[in-house]
Design a protein around this nucleic acid. Structure first.
Lengths: 201, 201
DNA sequence: GGGAATATTCCC
DNA sequence: GGGAATATTCCC
């Protein structure tokens, strides 16, 4: 299963431009590039449209059953559509499943990074309460910066230690279960052995 | 694949008591009831604890690989833990993966409906503006003091983590040597066994 | 442990 | 098509 579509990480919750397109976009792009993939009888399941400005799902049923689960954690056509809508794609034909997004074009995988989710602003709070977050640390003096820096490092180390701890704990759990199995195995072999010896007498 | 854990529907977004427990809770309950399910060699992977007031994941590795994907759309132990935390479960042993929730008890599937997600109130302030420790508004007027304090705490935590790591590593070393001994013992017993059998012929 | 982003589901 | 809940991931 293709699960190498992580977002690269590093800037969760920031409003900076991400280095990587959303996994959903990459997967959708790639499943189109995978291209020729055909159903059992040679017909295309999904493909770019003529000029590569959009794509067409020729067979939603096969697309759901065969294509979706290879890229996503589901096989529901509606969930796929929901994602398309979330990212601002438009259905451009009432006759067939054809979708477009200005920044989603054949040959332009690099442009995907321009596509963003339509975020349903929590809307409870007026936007002026949201700080823009960039450009607010511009004038810290050196000591603060220093503090901040070592603080940063400590947090980093801390985080890594916790990750390591989890891994070690899991290793230990495995050892415990392995030990149990070995002991059982041993006792079985010995039982077996004893039985045979007894039969010999 | 068991996908019959829909929430019954009808009241999305309402704050009324739902008729059905969250799918996550039902699945977790059911995978425990499925009960006896064992790994390849008869050891339990996961089970209720002694009095049914909580449950224990005996083998995180097998639990992730074998159990999780049969109930969820993933095989990550951490995602499972994340959900437990979301629903307010507590890890009640530092020595093993044992979790409890007041309303999650053996034989009380009906009580699951009482368990709700902790909803992260859509707080007005971005999280990075929140200071990490509780009760820091007391009187630490100077921000420096505050900095110092959290720095202190971080260092303390760091130290403890390293100590813990050492202990875990030592435990692992012991397990390794134990494993070796067991394997040797096993092979000896089997050799011995085989010799006798041969002499018999 | 938990905040927050993305993914999936469910419903209007 | 989209709002909103739950699920999964990623990060602190």
């Amino acid at each position: 299963m293709a699960e190498n579509y992580s977002n690269g990480g590093g800037q969760v919750g920031q409003s900076l431009r991400p280095r990587c397109p959303a996994p959903f976009l990459l997967k959708t792009y790639d499943l189109l590039e995978e291209g020729g993939v055909a159903d059992g009888s040679g017909g295309k399941i999904v493909s770019w449209n003529g000029d590569g400005s959009g794509f067409i799902v020729w067979s939603p049923a096969e697309f759901s059953d065969l294509t979706l689960p290879r890229y996503f954690k589901h096989n529901n056509f509606s969930s796929f559509i929901r994602q398309l809508n979330t990212y601002g794609f438009k259905k451009i034909s009432s006759k067939r499943w054809e979708f477009k997004h200005e920044k989603f074009q054949r040959g332009c995988r690099d442009m995907l990074v321009e596509i963003t989710r339509k975020k349903g602003e929590p809307s409870v709070f007026p936007s002026y309460l949201k700080s823009s977050s960039e450009e607010n640390a511009t004038t810290s003096n050196s000591m603060e910066e220093n503090n901040n820096n070592s603080h940063q490092l400590l947090m980093e180390e801390n985080k890594n230690l916790k990750k390591e701890r989890l891994e070690l704990q899991m290793q230990i759990a495995e050892f415990k279960s392995l030990e149990m199995k070995l002991l059982e195995c041993l006792s079985q072999v010995m039982d077996n052995h004893q039985n045979k010896s007894r039969r010999q007498c």
